[in-house]
Amino acid sequence: MPAEASTLPERSPLSLQNRWRERKVISALYGVRCQACGTPQLSQIGQALRVCVNCQARDRFEDYKFSDKKGRLFSYAIDQLQPTLNPPGVNGVVDFEGGGRLICELTDCDLDKVRVGMPVAMTFRKMYQLRGLVNYFWKARPAE
């Protein structure tokens, strides 16, 4: 059954060019780890990281995979307005074991059991379809 359309303004169009550049982030949730300070990091918006968020070293990164890391929910928000295939939108600030943070959608969760500190794991999901393009990306699910 189709969900009622969101009354929020339409999302920006997906860019195939941008998604091709960021294919490692999208397909396997790759971020980077800074070789100068060791900080794992992941861009929130599909931009390549060039300067370290922690120590500002430039271009001293190695690939770092987040998709297999366990995480914990640092905070969350349950959004009644969010255009999502899985309403209401449950969103969390996920802190990964070993460092790094991602603010992302949650899925497969019992709304009454979502809490600060909840263990989560990452899962590859269909986010939405817009103008003929299907957007797959990563969501967090409870891992208790």
């Binding site: 009354t7 929020l8 303004p9 339409e10 999302r11 920006s12 169009p13 997906l14 860019s15 060019q17 941008n18 998604r19 960021e22 982030v25 999208i26 861009s43 929130q44 918006i45 599909g46 931009q47 928000a77 349950i78 959004d79 307005l81 969010q82 255009p83 999502t84 939108g89 969103n91 603010i103 992302c104 959608e105 986010m127 939405y128 817009l130 957007n135 990306f137």
Partner: peptide
């Protein structure tokens, strides 16, 4: 419409989005 338009994540390029941002509302 009921909200403020823009990219799914603050600061993203609204003309060529990666679609990575979860796209929650400003209240969230």
């Amino acid at each position: 419409q009921t909200g403020v338009k823009g990219p799914a994540v603050v600061g993203d390029n609204s003309e060529g989005s990666s679609g990575i941002g979860p796209g929650y509302s400003a209240p969230a």
